[in-house]
Design a protein around this nucleic acid. Sequence first.
DNA 1: AACGACAACAACCGCCTGCCC
DNA 2: AGGGCAGGCGGTTGTTGTCGT
Length: 337
Amino acid sequence: MVELKKGPWTREEDQKLLAYIEEHGHGSWRSLPTKAGLQRCGKSCRLRWTNYLRPDIKRGKLSTQEEKTIIRLHALLGNRWSAIAAHLPKRTDNEVKNYWNTRLKKRLTRMGIDPVTYKPKNNPDRHAANLLSHMAQWETARLEAEARLVRESKLLSKLQLLRKFTAPPPPPPPPHPAAPPCLDVLKVWRATAAPNCFFSSPGSLESPTSTLNFCSTSTLTVPTVSSAAQNDVISMNSSGACGVGKVNSYKEVKLGTMENSSTSSHLDSGNNLDDYHVDYDYDYDMTGSVDLASVNHNSEGYNVGGAIDEVGEFEDAADYWSELLNLVSSPMESPGL
DNA sequence: AACGACAACAACCGCCTGCCC
DNA sequence: AGGGCAGGCGGTTGTTGTCGT
């Protein structure tokens, strides 16, 4: 038995891997090394391909804009590198992770900012922290909702496939929507509720891409919100109003036509069959609202939000973040620590 | 020139999840 | 139902390059 090679890849190995994948595709990674004449494990080949050899990846220094995006998304999502990398075209999760660990994290630390909580270490900003905490909750809920809907959507596709063989041929399927319904809290927020907020400064954040894919008009009943969200969860409607509360029950997620919809994210392509909406229907007790369109206080009595168009403590958070991002992303700079 | 400290990046490892049988 | 497999993900380690002394 031939011992598998480890460590850095040689040019010859790269060429073998590239040539094989270009000709045959990667197929099963486990069997690839043998077929390609490489003494590597399949996993190693996959990593080399996805992190280095793939033609659609961008190499080189990250731009200031990319840095800012990483910081913002990290504040929202934590160490979910693949999710963060998904918002940075042509960058890999490994690259983003390395960049964070070797540069941004240290830079924040040097500036006296905790890279986990994003609080100033000596002068914790409860408002900014609170805000971020709620934003993180929204994003978590959104990702869970997306994942769930994708699962349901796949299930639906399978059911339709089954029906295809057991029922008379259906009319031709509706054309695919031009874009998936917007479930993305950042997008909605930027577009509606927070035009002046720090997260929506011009060009500051690439529109995250929803991976949702809807294949049909239907109503799906989803039994639970999510295991992680059975206590405090987030509700959001298309106008950007959001709330945090305790879920008593979760009714259903509808994918249907616009006529049934009152508050929903939707696409209107002019074709009835192409009108989709997603209707979140949570029954919850509001314990602390983060309605972005009005000032609210959470259960601890802190002002966690603030009218966007009113001067309030929200602006402190905005200032805090603008300043932070400017400092972190400027090429400078000995912070004098 | 030699050495050590540090930064940057590539690669590995272990765990987890989803799928298939 | 559960075991095996493939692939994805995040944490960690190893290697190489650079800079200061």
